[in-house]
Design a protein around this nucleic acid. Sequence first.
DNA 1: AATGAATGATACTATATTAGTATCATTTGT
DNA 2: ACAAATGATACTAATATAGTATCATTCATT
Lengths: 134, 134
Amino acid sequence: MSLITKETDYAARALLFLAKQKGRVVSSSELDKELGVPRPILRKVLQRLQREGILISQKGNRGGFTLVKEPKDIFLMDLMKIFQGNFSFLNCFVRDKLCANVKTCSIRKHVYKIEQKVVRELKTLTIQKLMREN
Amino acid sequence: MSLITKETDYAARALLFLAKQKGRVVSSSELDKELGVPRPILRKVLQRLQREGILISQKGNRGGFTLVKEPKDIFLMDLMKIFQGNFSFLNCFVRDKLCANVKTCSIRKHVYKIEQKVVRELKTLTIQKLMREN
DNA sequence: AATGAATGATACTATATTAGTATCATTTGT
DNA sequence: ACAAATGATACTAATATAGTATCATTCATT
């Protein structure tokens, strides 16, 4: 089980690097060398971040990506939403039918509480924070 | 993403039910009706719980399962270990090689902190607790 | 204007995990 | 003897994750 999947991880690492470049245009090949991440998947991730408005891209020779959103405004949670969709710690469907006991289920209640705590924590983590605290 | 998979969930629900039966022998077919969980997978789960020493089984006609471990001594975390193995919120391997930056990686550090909190929470959840607090 | 280095879009394959099924031997109360 | 149960084990299906491939388009450089 991973809370953070590879794509989210790669995205965060790429953004961390770009944030340090202060607006410089960085190509996916440079990032590839820097991060040691498989190029094709890195490209896919960068393209997605562009579509999401976190990066802007410059096509053509000497093109690449630049960070446009402020590091303090990019939350790890956002990246998780983008690359992993919504998550829930417990799946209350059995054979595509919502479990009959959802309303009273104590397991659900307890796990949900933990989930909410995690979400709260994740919502404090920004790229900026990840840069500062080493 | 699920923190708790189906098998763990089914196990917990079965144990909750058994705990309420105070030592009565309950067959997998009764449990199946009770929980609405696919029988074959429920059987697999129960057999595993027996091997793990949480249940004892009685073979033959009118056989079934009985809880032997105290509800207060069965942690949700144990069930997760049994059915899901060890988990980690972040996978630091890229192409089967440990990421070169593990030591300094700030993402890892932050995520690990959250993971530890979750583990701490999970370690407080027992079947007994799940019975009491509805 | 030609070239090469870059991204955009998109479809595809591979791998791993989770979920669920099937089968047959063995046991045991009635 | 029989039916109802578990033990052991192997298998299939579905889903999610990870990674690859291809081709069109753009554009700085020459």
